[in-house]
């Protein structure tokens, strides 16, 4: 652990003096890009020198990328570029797959979350996740939202009820389900299920929400609702969204990171990335020349 930190500092040193020697691109944690957005705020989550392996296969190569609080950061890139792999590191969901290895540091509010000192369950309460396919539990609507509170030791029935209603409202689902909280969640439509999963995530009061292609299995109308919701939620939360849909990235995000073949190619304000990409590969992807 300590060794990697030393390595990392070495890298930092190198990077500061010889930018051309750094293999990976540089995210905002290096605060050298001079984009107006960053001044005055520290990144909520900061990945530094992250390498990731499935067995012996390297899936992510030297990722340096920070995420600003109360902003939406989109991660885009072609299939298999490592974007989903990357956000699963941020709440340690990668640990569910055996035989993986992570190098480097990921800081949440300045504290490393990758080591054994950090409890994965505690971390996931702070960094929530919404998945590609809606995955409600085979329980009632109410129980689904209350679940996270229960496992976090909330026993006060009134408090739970209040939180459930609150979360459903925040997820813009309350109007549609308020009369059938006791029905099975599996009876909801796909879009409603996804908003239920968002409500379930909000009930735990996370600080960061990871969206892993949340609209991949939804129709355009449901997609629109989720996007509106994301824009609403960013007032309170740090949001990271992985998407293969560039229009979606352009619509909802403040910042965009482009991944290609396990590397971070470029990161910056969304408008700038889409209008004036600095890297040829980013431009090719955005203009649809590959992927």
């Amino acid at each position: 652990m300590h060794d990697t930190m030393v390595d990392y500092e070495k890298q930092m040193g190198l990077e500061n003096f010889h930018p051309s020697l750094v293999k990976g691109p540089v995210g905002i944690n290096m605060n050298s890009l001079g984009e107006a957005d960053l001044f005055g705020s520290e990144p909520k989550i900061d990945a530094r020198g992250v390498n990731f392996y499935y067995g012996s296969k390297k899936a992510l190569n030297n990722i340096n990328l920070g995420f600003l609080p109360r902003r939406v950061t989109a991660i885009i890139g072609p299939s298999g570029c490592g974007k989903s792999t990357f956000i699963r590191l941020l709440n340690r969901m990668h640990e569910l797959v055996p035989g993986t290895r992570l190098e480097g540091e990921i800081l949440l509010d300045g504290l490393d979350i990758t080591g054994p000192a950090c409890d994965a369950a505690e971390l996931r309460k702070r960094v929530g996740m919404v998945f590609q396919k809606p995955n409600p539990f085979p329980k009632t609507i109410f129980e689904n939202v209350a679940y996270g509170l229960e496992v976090n030791g909330v026993t006060d029935k009134e408090l739970i009820r209040g939180k459930v209603i609150d979360s459903l409202k925040k997820a813009a689902l309350w109007g549609e389900v308020k009369d059938r909280l006791k029905d099975s969640a599996l009876g909801l439509s796909g879009g409603q299920q996804q908003r239920l999963c968002i409500a379930r995530c909000l009930a735990v009061e996370p600080e960061v929400i990871l969206f892993d292609e949340p609209c991949a299995s939804l129709d355009p109308i449901s997609t629109g609702k989720i996007e509106e919701l994301i824009l609403e939620l960013k007032k309170e939360y740090t949001i990271i969204i992985v998407t293969h849909n560039m229009q979606q990235a352009a619509r909802v995000s403040d910042r965009t990171a482009f991944f290609l073949m396990g590397e971070l190619i470029e990161e910056g304000r969304t408008e700038r990335i889409f209008k004036a990409p600095r890297d040829k590969r980013t431009e090719d992807y955005i203009t649809g020349r590959f992927g």
């Binding site: 569910l96 369950a121 998945f131 396919k133 995955n135 539990f137 679940y147 379930r200 995530c201």
Partner: peptide, 11 residues
């Protein structure tokens, strides 16, 4: 997926 959902909520 529902195992993941539960773990992601901090269970």
């Amino acid at each position: 997926s529902i195992r993941e959902a539960s773990l992601a909520l901090g269970a």
